[in-house]
Design a protein around this nucleic acid. Structure first.
Lengths: 194, 194
DNA sequence: TTCATTACGTGATGTAGATCACATTCGTCA
DNA sequence: TGACGAATGTGATCTACATCACGTAATGAA
């Protein structure tokens, strides 16, 4: 499916836009393509866009002391990604977003999103829904962090993103789980043996 | 300040409603008062309201195996609380909300919120803003969880909710930090001695 | 093909924090 | 005022995971 129809289908699950409204909405997006390994947002830069993933996989992550990396989110087709704290507060990025694979995304500037939200009530509703979904997911992950051991969280992750299993290197999965790659490796091999 | 004006001031920081619009908006809220220790939402029940705190302090928390408690949020004056996962998905509550002190709150039903969002574009904008703020805060806390040790998180918490320091029992602070009360006690007393 | 880089596995050892156990103090209510 | 439950402090021990160290396999570019 092409980018426009993918976005259209995604939005239409939540709000009903006329074709004309959707065309107008879509006219604010810009198609961008990146190669595996390229950077979309990097720490310290200004952030003025958010991204809707058409194909491929992004990761958003924080790097501590130039050493440890923690992955906040993997973003696959129909997921959204940005540094939302920086985007909304108009501050410099504190997180990075880059490409795990070749990627096609649709970008939307913060100003255009706010303009569209003002102009089309349904669009505002859509973005409220989307943010709410993210909020609930984030709370759930936080709870899982406090409550579950690493193995349980590993299984949860594979349930949430089944495609990751064979797609992304294990050390990235460890960085999402917040454990060392060694621990994940041991865990993973121990549970294989029965 | 009375409940109505507190809410009015809170909302007006984000959107401009006419007095007539605000009166209509406010007419959907119901004042409720609770005594310290009383339950607002309990696990397994239906959830159909969210709460705006006028005075006092709520906690929202998850209880694992009837044993361990993890606090998702403390909610003080002008904060909102509910089990948003249950509220939006119309499922049974998985978290609890109760009162750390005597509390006055304004309740708003999910149906009324959605109705108000449909009827008044500015109201939808307000709730999008509010949820977004919650999402960003939740991401930040998740990152802090992965990245920082308990002591740093303890200091962050006191910076975020300075009023908690002398207000709530230490074991609740431990439950927010996701550590045992013993560990918090040791940490707290160790750092006192210099 | 070769060489370098990245990914992955696994042992040894150190450590933050959990858990258990018990003592002490505080708050609340009869 | 006395008493009982809740909150807190503190020692001893256990455990999951980090860290360091090293080896091997896979990947990718020249």
């Amino acid at each position: 499916m092409d980018a426009k129809n993918l976005l259209k289908e995604h939005v239409s699950k939540i709000v009903a836009l006329t074709d004309k409204q959707f065309d107008y909405f879509f006219s604010h997006f810009k198609t961008e393509t990146f190669k595996k390994g390229q950077t979309v947002i990097s720490e310290g830069q200004n952030v003025d866009k958010e991204y809707f993933v058409v194909s491929g996989c992004l990761k958003s992550f924080y790097v501590n002391d130039e050493i440890k990396m923690y992955i906040l989110q993997f973003a696959m087709s129909t997921w959204w990604a940005s540094d939302y704290a920086a985007l909304y507060n108009k501050t410099k990025a504190t997180i990075n977003v880059d490409c795990i694979s070749d990627v096609e995304i649709l970008s939307l500037s913060n100003d255009d999103r706010e303009k569209l939200c003002r102009e089309i009530h349904e669009v505002e509703h859509f973005f409220r829904w989307r943010t709410n979904r993210g909020y609930v997911a984030s709370q759930k992950r936080l709870l899982s962090f406090m409550n579950n051991d690493t193995k349980t969280r590993y299984e949860e992750l594979l349930a949430l993103y089944p495609a990751l299993y064979n797609t992304v290197p294990k050390h990235l999965i460890a960085a999402y789980l917040g454990v060392s790659r060694e621990t994940l490796s041991r865990l993973y091999n121990a549970s294989k043996s029965h």
